[in-house]
């Protein structure tokens, strides 16, 4: 079974986790001032990279906290996990 390292609980089975989409997408400060194209960009457009991807994950059946992970979308390998609010680790070339 794939193990995912929760920043709070340590390595835990993937059955306990849920995926929360791409990480580091800040909600615009003033949505009312945005036009439809920019709002669409924020709401729907995602990087969808082949390779390292920064994602939100939630340890739903554990500590229940959200955290971020760097996962390689071609190998499903988790290269790093880190707490929400932390910057994306600079790991160019890792996990390939």
């Amino acid at each position: 079974m794939l193990l995912i390292t929760c920043p709070h609980c340590g390595p835990r089975p993937e059955l306990e986790f849920t995926h929360g989409g791409e990480a580091h997408i800040a909600r615009p400060e003033n949505p009312a001032a945005m036009n439809a194209e920019d709002w669409t960009e924020y709401l729907y457009m995602r990087a969808n990279p082949k390779g390292l991807h920064a994602e939100r994950w939630r340890h739903l059946h554990g500590c229940a906290r959200f955290f971020n992970a760097l996962r390689d979308t071609t190998t499903d390998q988790f290269v790093a996990t880190y707490a929400t609010g932390q910057p994306r680790p600079d790991l160019k070339g890792a996990g390939q």
Binding site: C9, L15, E16, H61, G62, C63, A64
Partner: peptide, 10 residues
Amino acid sequence: CTRTVLAKAE
């Protein structure tokens, strides 16, 4: 102690 799953139950 921890939350976890037992088959289909949390």
